[in-house]
Amino acid sequence: MLEITDVSWAVPAARILDHITCTVPAGSLVGLLGPNGSGKTTLIRAVAGLVRPDTGAMTIAGDHIAGLRRLALARRIALLAQHADTDLDLTVRDVVLLGRIPHRRSRWSDTADDHTAVAEALTRVDLAGFADRTWLTLSGGERQRAQLARAFAQEPELLLLDEPTNHLDIGHQLQLLSLVRRAKVTTLAALHDLNLAAMFCDTVVVLHHGRVVATGPPTEVLTSGLLAGVYGVDAEVRVHDGRTVICYRPPS
């Protein structure tokens, strides 16, 4: 369980995070929504320990994130970024083994545990049999799934996703998020696509100008009033087959 209490972060020109308070309950998938520049990515980066907020507290299972060493943090929190790129000719196994680095017992060799964790992680993302494929031969969707397997191999208590579906086609977007859902790891996911958020998230937190403007189940939060106020779009929110569906109208 992740608790964010009154977190603020400012750069000289702007206040990026403004007194943010929210919670990710254990086992749930929480969507972090908001337009570009609303502070989603910064908040994710703060939880990952990549930026240090000026004020406020973030705790994971009661432990202060700011007080944990990098290595200890990497054993508990894994991050799946928007886009991972390398020009090295790594195999999928090499990539997923990176997730074992925080758990290393030896500076040199991989243990049997490491290989078991890699095999399990690949199975969890439906990439069993891909271990020997090289990164350069993978499609965008396969790359993101390999990175998700790397994150699973870290055996995290908390999974952070930073707009992980941005470069994927709709089929791979649905597949990736359903794999995350199926994993039942506590997850905080910055998402752009509101329909995906409505489909997969237990609760959503909506940011606007660095502030939390709404929190709750997607069906309650995602209203046409909120969409007009936060995103400036004209949209109709319907319920179709028991799901919340957002239909946008072109700007007039």
């Binding site: 990497a74 390398t86 790594l90 925080p102």
Partner: peptide
């Protein structure tokens, strides 16, 4: 040689390395 694994962590950039526990 003692840093070989740490060097591997840089494959996807420094932020990725940082989230893998590398200082």
């Amino acid at each position: 040689l003692t840093q070989a694994r740490t060097l591997n962590a840089f494959a996807f950039g420094e932020e990725a390395a940082a989230t893998l526990g590398v200082d």
